[in-house]
Write a protein that binds this DNA or RNA. Structure first.
Lengths: 193, 193
DNA sequence: ACAGTTAGGAACCGTTCGGTACAAAACACG
DNA sequence: CGTGTTTTGTACCGAACGGTTCCTAACTGT
């Protein structure tokens, strides 16, 4: 009943995600969002309540999209060796940066900025990183690395992921990124006894 | 000649550093800075030009303080084994968080936020992380780890440092932090061949 | 004592922030 | 063909932002 909205809410959230991804929560202004989403103030506030609520929905979308995709990749058995999956993933992150995408990771940026003081956002970040942790764990389970080391190794990989993603946003650290990914490879390829 | 200022510029920068450390560059408002530094607008702008310049001086101070201290610790030979120094350092970071200090690292936060788009700030962040890199390298030089692995390992440690510091700002990740530090210990203690 | 110089303080600047109010426009349904 | 309902667009809001101006107070050198 009544007038239908002229935009697809899913598309709008997708566009909003890109804006937040580039500028972070605090860095993205209403004007940035409106321009990026292609709609006006009235429509945004009617459909998404406010900036904070919109960001939470964007975070959820990010989890269901980028994060879930990463977890799926880490769990996919078309690469039988779990360590190879992890290596490929970190390599892919570096490639992303090399090809010019310096947005990093939406969750990691949210964890670093002032927005991390918001408990809703902090909770979303936490669950997102836990999903990543789960992905690394399943990948490690498909490796020849002793099970006793999986727990600590998974945490190291999460931390490494966050560090890599954060540094992706700063310029001219390409050498560090590539060698960090190499180090992960060496680390996983030569398991300790 | 003329009226002397009533505050010590060094102390003021020190206080400003604490404000930026808690809130980040963009998150710290003029009101925050003035309150934290204990002076008024006129004095601040007369002595430090503007917020941006003040932050650059704060970053320099941070390098000469916290960063240099970390590098010194990694280079100090009162702990003969380099790996032990690195382990102690990461352990210290975790302890800092446990004791309630969730400020993380000023450089890392600057690298993550919108301020990273500023080239002056980005440059300062880069040199700071390079200093950390140097610290890790000298520590590795004082270890029994094969020299061929030092380069990549140092980069991994920098990335790990950044990740750890970023996650320090988010709540309730204590388990990940502690186990990440443990993982570093295991990694360094059981060198590969 | 006085002139010169600088710090301190507060009022104020325009801009931008996130958010709201409301009228006009566009549709569904009877 | 209205009538009711919802979206859309715009004008507007108060608050906070970083920054400037300018007057007064406080000191130095002569």
């Amino acid at each position: 009943m009544a007038r239908p909205r002229e935009f697809d809410p899913d598309d709008a959230i997708e566009r909003a995600m890109n804006v937040f991804w580039q500028h972070g929560y605090d860095g993205a202004s209403l004007a940035d969002l409106l321009a990026g989403m292609g709609l006006t103030r009235g429509s945004l506030y009617k459909a998404f309540k406010d900036k904070h609520s919109l960001f939470l929905r964007v975070l959820k979308r990010y989890e269901q999209g980028a994060v879930a995709q990463a977890v799926e990749f880490l769990s996919a058995e078309d690469i039988p060796d779990g360590t190879a999956r992890i290596e490929a993933m970190f390599g892919g992150i570096v490639d992303t940066v090399v090809s010019g995408d310096k947005r990093g990771c939406l969750l990691c940026s949210a964890a670093a900025g002032p927005s991390s003081y918001d408990e809703d956002i902090a909770a979303a970040v936490k669950t997102g990183l836990q999903q990543m942790h789960g992905g690394f764990s399943t990948a490690l389970a498909a490796s020849d690395i002793p099970t006793s080391q999986h727990a600590t190794l998974a945490d190291l990989l999460v931390t490494q992921y966050v560090g890599l993603r954060i540094m992706s946003r700063s310029v001219d650290q390409l050498d560090i990124l590539t060698r960090s990914a190499e180090a992960i490879t060496q680390l996983l390829r030569h398991p300790k006894h």
